[in-house]
Simulated assay, not measured.
Amino acid sequence: MPEPAKLAVSNQKGGVGKTAVAINVAGALNQRGHDVLFVDLDPQGNATENLGMRSVYDKDPPSLFDVLSDPNQRDRISELVLEHQEMDLLPSNIDMTAVEPELTLSRRSGQQLALTLEYVEDDYDYVIIDCPPFLGNLMDNALYAAQNTLIPALAETTSKRAFELLFDHIDALNKDYGIQIRECGVVVNRIDVRKRQAQEMITWIEDAFDDTPVWKVRERASLQRALTNGASLFVEEPDSDQIPVFEDIGKNLDRQFLRREAKP
């Protein structure tokens, strides 16, 4: 079995629908027959809640905090993985709110997630990492572990500065670790087609990322309903008109990572 394809869904700007994009991309890959591990690296635990696992957010140790902050507990990661109907979940935990300073003290502060995932990643075709909405050690860990990123963004001018900050951060990581983090695509999310600014910003993003896939997801209540019910659109809102967008993302990722659709 080849190494899993790993993807960090990242944007340090909050409110861009990052978790919704990550869950629905994972759902699309599951629909294509792939085994997916979803890593909720956000201390807020939104993905853990949106996948119907809210109760584990307050669970006693060991948690994701422990396996990231204590090298002697890395091999306990398999105890944390939970089964969901569409994907396996490595949930966040309330203790993750204190992990940033702990990672700062680590000898290999940006590599702890990569070292931890080595214990479980070979069971999966894809690892999807839902990043926190800020730049710091957790974001570094996600980007280093994946070395591929999918960027959710809003169709508004504030996204220009967000892109600039993210790419400055990625450039610094590339230099510090001698790696090359690749952009696999941009998902312009929560688009209100009635707003002229949205159309103008979409054009700007498509021009700025002329060699990178850009997908457009319209604002739809079905996206939030699906998350409220604990799954992706593919399970909870199969008639949503936004499903074809996520299907295309899944198909494109398979091409990029040289994966074949694994449907029976």
Rank of each mutant, 00 (worst) to 15 (best):
D254S: 09
S92A: 15
P91G: 09
E156R: 07
R74P: 09
R259G: 02
N148Y: 13
V36D: 03
V193N: 03
V9A: 04
V186F: 06
N137R: 14
D42P: 00
Q44L: 04
V25G: 00
S55E: 15
D210Y: 06
I23W: 00
D171Y: 02
N148I: 05
D88P: 01
V81Y: 12
R190D: 07
L7Y: 10
G17W: 03
P91V: 14
A8K: 07
T104W: 00
M53N: 08
E164F: 12
Q197T: 04
Q224T: 13
P61L: 06
F134D: 05
A231K: 10
D122M: 11
A20H: 01
V99A: 02
V9Q: 03
S109T: 12
L29G: 00
D35S: 13
L64E: 04
R54E: 14
N11H: 05
P61T: 08
V245I: 15
K160I: 15
G230L: 12
H84T: 14
P71K: 10
Q111N: 07
L143E: 05
A208R: 12
L117F: 11
G15W: 08
L64Q: 10
F167K: 08
R161E: 15
A22C: 05
E236M: 14
Q85M: 12
L89H: 09
E219H: 07
R107K: 13
